[in-house]
């Protein structure tokens, strides 16, 4: 990529040196285009390699030995991956429902009311997004271990597992949902609510029939964001999981750690497809 890193400076130099500014500009232009293409190649080459070699019949990643769906077949007969996918879906599903409800409520409260302590609430709401994954993971691990020991003394012991993963995911997902819903509420035409009230709708009916439908795209967008983040999360899950609660990213991690197999390529291709469908769906929703 070294040719790209210097693309700006030589372009400018040539431009000042030549007597024909028009030609010089076109050279800058050309270098900009080269950079554009190189960035796109940089972005798509790894994905292309994964997809192409998921259909390779051989085991070696760099040698093409013929088209085959063998790795997909192997993937579908792998029960560990099936279980991991199920766990991931449970974690993402449950944490999305909880964080969407709480995130939407808190967004309404923050946008509509002024109260003492609003600033500290604001920072408490933004911090989980800013803090690095690894720090969040570590603090939740410590918390769950301490709480587990404390509760075990009074007979309510628990161990790390799907439950703790869900609690941890809700802790960061509330913030993401709240940010998306608040953005929707911020450019919301308040006169519509006033109109409803002028027409003798009570507060609940105004919310139910005016506010809620209007912010629905924001809520759904927030829920989809939470779902994808939860499905994608590795670091926090890694620290808050226990035996038997392996999610898909954890499974992929241990597969990658133990060695490269084309089975991961097949899995990656399928996940790529799934996340494309999810994201395009969410874009379509937000456009409404």
């Amino acid at each position: 990529m070294s040719s790209v890193t210097t693309s700006l400076a030589p372009a400018a130099k040539v431009e000042s040196a030549t007597a024909l500014p028009r030609r010089a500009i076109s050279l800058t232009e050309r270098l900009l285009q080269v950079n554009l293409w190189l960035v796109f190649i940089f972005f798509y080459a790894p994905i292309a390699v994964l997809i192409i070699f998921s259909f390779n019949s051989g085991r070696v990643v760099s040698q093409w030995e013929g088209f085959s769906l063998a790795w997909y077949a192997k993937l579908f007969s792998n029960r560990d991956i099936g279980l991991a996918l199920y766990n991931s879906m449970v974690v993402a599903g449950v944490s999305t429902v909880i964080s969407t409800i709480m995130g939407t409520l808190v967004a309404l409260g923050m946008e509509r009311f002024d109260f003492r302590g609003k600033l500290s609430m604001d920072s408490m709401l933004y911090l989980p997004i800013i803090i690095p994954d690894i720090a969040m993971a570590v603090m939740l691990l410590l918390f769950f271990v301490q709480a587990g020991q404390l509760l075990a003394r009074i007979g309510f012991g628990f161990s790390l597992g799907l439950g703790t993963i869900i609690l941890a995911h809700v802790a960061f997902n509330i913030s993401y949902v709240a940010v998306v819903v608040r953005a929707r509420l911020a450019d919301f035409d308040k006169s519509l609510e006033e109109a409803a009230r002028d027409l003798y709708a009570n507060e609940w009916n105004t919310f139910r029939y005016v506010t809620l439908p209007l912010i629905m795209p924001g809520i759904l967008g927030g829920a989809l964001l939470a779902f994808t983040i939860s499905l994608d999360d590795f670091v926090v899950t890694f620290f808050t999981s226990g035996p038997g609660s392996t999610t898909l990213p954890l499974r992929i991690y241990s597969m990658v750690k133990t060695g490269i197999t084309p089975e991961i390529n097949a899995l990656s291709t399928l996940m790529l497809l799934a996340s494309m469908v999810l994201v395009l769906g969410s874009l379509a929703l937000q456009r409404k």
């Binding site: 990643v61 992929i252 990658v256 490269i260 990656s268 494309m276």
Partner: peptide
Amino acid sequence: VPFWTNFLIRTYAWRVILAND
């Protein structure tokens, strides 16, 4: 678009590309 895929998989892809073979 590439950004929408799992972070582990995006990183793994580079492990494949930069490997000795």
